[in-house]
Amino acid sequence: MKKFTYLIPKSTDEAISMHESHGKRAKYIAGGTDVIVKIKEGKLSPDYLISLKHITSLNQLALNKETGKLHIGALVTHGMLEESSLIRTQYPILHDAVTNIGSVQIRNVATIGGNLVNAVPSADGAIPLIALDAKVEFYGPKGEQSEDLIRFFLGPGQNILERSEILTEITVPPLLPNTGSAYIKFGRRAAMELPLLGVGVLLSLDEDLKHCVKARIGLGVAAPTPMRAMEAEQFLTGKAIDEDMASEAGRIAAKESRVRDSIRGVAWYRREMVSVLVKRMGLMCLERIRDL
């Protein structure tokens, strides 16, 4: 592997000043499951790797009881999310997704922040967080900034972070009562595979447990960046949700999707599957609300 100097800052400020002083010769690294592969393949050739792993403030996973907000540090690994009983019980959509990212070995090391910063269209971590209306917090020479996660992605491999900026935290606003959520990674096999499609649905129902007060539909590999099917969301809002409504929402979402042909699957098939899986995840939400 190409030689580099490995720097281990203990704070975000120290990391940023290291990055500023080495400029384009430096690259941040977190879990490294993508960065090291890219260095081995010669796609990246930094002289300095700045590790964010030892900045303990980025490593926290906690629900703030006062605000009801969930805080996920960017350095939290997929394994920590998979094993968290808070995530499994309150945010099953996220548990569904992280459980099938990579393998145990990858999940033990790879971070949720790294998954988002990579900005691949198939990012399994991003879709459920988008359905949860997550925000990203980032920090750099300009200070602290915040943005809706859906606006974080600019294109395949492209995000809004500017030079030396670090993604620090993902925050999820409080859930409404009677909320169910579910995600499916659809592909030939679950582990060690990029999905053909990723579909996440979140539904919040009124006290009558019938009428939808909020719907979120996140789609992965359905466009150059993770997307929301907003027309389908609007269609569901205010309606009494049953199987027919979920089917119709699936059809609308399929129309909205901007799927294309790729090595893993063709566009028409992806479009059909958006329709099927949005319906299926919608019904799974209802089931999970009943089980609350």
């Binding site: 490995y6 281990i8 490294g32 499951t33 090291i36 592969v37 590790s51 792993k53 394994g79 145990v104 070995q105 990858i106 033990n108 090391v109």
Partner: peptide, 13 residues
């Protein structure tokens, strides 16, 4: 306690 891929894990860590 964690299984990891040693091919991607830096010795410095």
């Amino acid at each position: 306690k964690d299984a990891v891929n040693s091919c991607l894990y830096l010795a410095a860590e």
